[in-house]
């Protein structure tokens, strides 16, 4: 099982933090900051797990997720959604669109690492 994760997040400091955490946990981390070109980047890198922010410049993370689920190559790509909008309807929407897990910012570091590992191993969908 691969340990390559693609982190689509436009906030440079958040990217830094998650990247540090996951690297330390043994993940091979790549990053991308633009929603509009995210799909191409995913296709190019073909990661094992995707961490996807909702509020992205250029294109919303939810739209990207919808397209991912339509494409056969990525329809079962494990996806962990991140959002800073704390409303439950956003989470419901993300899960309905096929996100495997969902985290609301700010999250604790352990939460992040555990959730990603669960998502990567095809564990049950969960989120907080």
């Amino acid at each position: 099982m691969g340990r390559r994760v693609l982190l689509v997040e436009d906030e440079i400091n958040i990217f830094e933090a998650i990247s540090f955490l996951l690297s330390r946990d043994g993940w091979e981390v790549s990053g991308h900051g633009n929603g509009a070109t995210a799909l191409d980047e995913i296709a190019r890198l073909d990661p094992d797990v995707l961490v996807l922010d909702v509020m992205l410049p250029g294109r919303s993370g939810l739209d990207i997720l919808r397209d991912l689920r339509k494409q056969p190559e990525t329809s079962d790509l494990p996806v962990l959604m991140l959002t800073a909008k704390g409303q439950s309807k956003d989470r419901d929407l993300a899960l309905a669109l096929g996100a495997n897990a969902y985290l609301t910012k700010p999250f604790s570091n352990s939460e992040m690492v555990e959730t990603l590992n669960r998502v990567a191993t095809g564990g049950q969908k969960a989120g907080t």
């Binding site: 400091n13 933090a17 955490l21 509020m55 800073a84 704390g86 409303q87 609301t104 700010p106 999250f107």
Partner: peptide, 21 residues
Amino acid sequence: LSQISHELRTPMTSIRAFSEL
């Protein structure tokens, strides 16, 4: 509110992550 939430939560995320580290 949702925008404010986003604007507040974004820096908080970095702060929390790095302070935990």
